[in-house]
Design a protein around this nucleic acid. Structure first.
Lengths: 231, 231
DNA sequence: CCTCACAAGTTGTATATACAACCTAGCGTG
DNA sequence: CACGCTAGGTTGTATATACAACTTGTGAGG
């Protein structure tokens, strides 16, 4: 595993207070007695892991330390349920053609939509209220499927063959309004997480969805290692 | 760019209802008249992008579609400010040795801690209250730095030379209690985002931090493409 | 029938080579 | 002085080769 040894050497160099840069593939290959392709592989992996930045014609430099504070994975509901060791259930409240409200219609580019509203339980406790609008022209067949099944994602991608190429989403905290609070068995005004999401297939929006989650039951939890794993 | 052509061809194959698998590097190289190394590169990139799963001795297969619902990046405060086009400011409320409360001490493995509490403004509006405990044995020098500067991350990593190797974090929604609400200029009980985080250096926890964010001003927003970019 | 060994096919690692694309510094010429 | 171009260094792409490590099926031998 020569390329691993080169990687480690470069990492040690990187840790020095005054690293000697830029590095080059040829320089490394000579210093460690390996071929250029092997040195190249080491540098490429270090770039992918966020340690180096490489530029054609210039060389390899230490990456701007980004200090991205990490990321929070959004897990599918059934995965979340499994992690909690809880039994999931889905109740369909609405599944019918219904025009989207103005703000949603604007984001979808049409008001000719289907509406699906589902309440999701963990161990018979309501946790998430999902409200979704789908472009009727593209997703008409959705209503023929069993919406108590877990994944609407699956239906869209597999059954309808819509590649989901882009997602926009936004997460915030809100006070649950009385109607929603009642569905989630919470007092009006209780805090909740709100995740809004628009999914695109080939530049055109297909579905808008809002998840309202009970603040006392739903969390996003993650552990990760900044800038890729240490070798 | 032959490897890109091979990638596209494999992606088209992947989209068929009944794809012919497993693929192999030799097979592809013959079919497209390229070298094995070129076919190899195409398959490797498709694996990294989540389309394929490769196993030594067996071959390359379509990946289990994961449908990870994506991830929310947590941006450093000054980056968030820049994105909003707002002027950031930091006010230090507390910066002194202070023992951590029991729940925090348990997570840090010590109660010999420093406490830093900072209020962060966007355009002179309070948005985030940060409460942090640091292992005093490792971070004593922190108090000598200018804590109104933007990044405590930078201080820990650069000035103290602590590699941050692991992060655990959890995000939820809470009702702001009266004391916090007052600091954030919100009515008591208003909804807020709460991000709790423990950062490790080499398996041992170094700092615990809680961010309380105004629900009406702070969001996590992202766009991304599921399973890597389309070529 | 069972078991072991081997062969064939696969990916992983390493090397050598060639040329293309790109960047920069410096030199020459106008 | 200013401009352009060239030379040398860098990464990017592509190929050919060799062997190691792993998986699976098959066939020989007990």
């Amino acid at each position: 595993m020569k390329y691993l040894q080169v990687k480690e050497a470069v990492l040690r160099e990187l840790a020095k207070p005054q690293p000697g840069f830029p590095l080059s593939e040829n320089q490394l290959s000579q210093r460690f007695g390996v071929s250029r392709m092997t040195a190249r592989r080491a540098l490429q992996e270090l770039e992918r892991e966020g340690y180096l930045s490489r530029q054609q014609g210039k060389g390899s430099f230490p990456a701007e330390r980004r200090f991205s504070q990490g990321s929070l994975r959004v897990r599918p509901f059934y995965e979340f349920a499994a992690a909690q060791g809880a039994v999931p259930r889905t109740q369909v409240l609405v599944a019918e053609p219904r025009p989207a409200p103005a703000e949603v219609a604007e984001k979808l580019g049409t008001a000719d939509t289907l509406c699906v509203r589902r309440l999701r339980f963990l161990d018979e406790e309501p946790v998430i209220l999902e409200t979704r609008y789908l472009d009727a022209a593209r997703c008409g067949a959705v209503l023929e499927h069993d919406l108590t099944a877990e994944s609407l994602h699956d239906i869209l991608v597999h059954a309808l063959g819509l590649p989901l190429t882009r997602v926009w989403q936004r997460l915030g905290a809100v006070a649950l309004d009385p109607e929603v609070a009642a569905l989630l068995a919470q007092p009006a005004g209780a805090p909740g997480l709100r995740l809004e999401r628009v999914t695109y297939t080939l530049q055109t929006p297909v579905t808008w969805v809002e998840y309202l989650m009970r603040g006392d039951r739903y969390f996003f939890e993650d552990t990760f290692t900044p800038q890729g794993e240490r070798p």
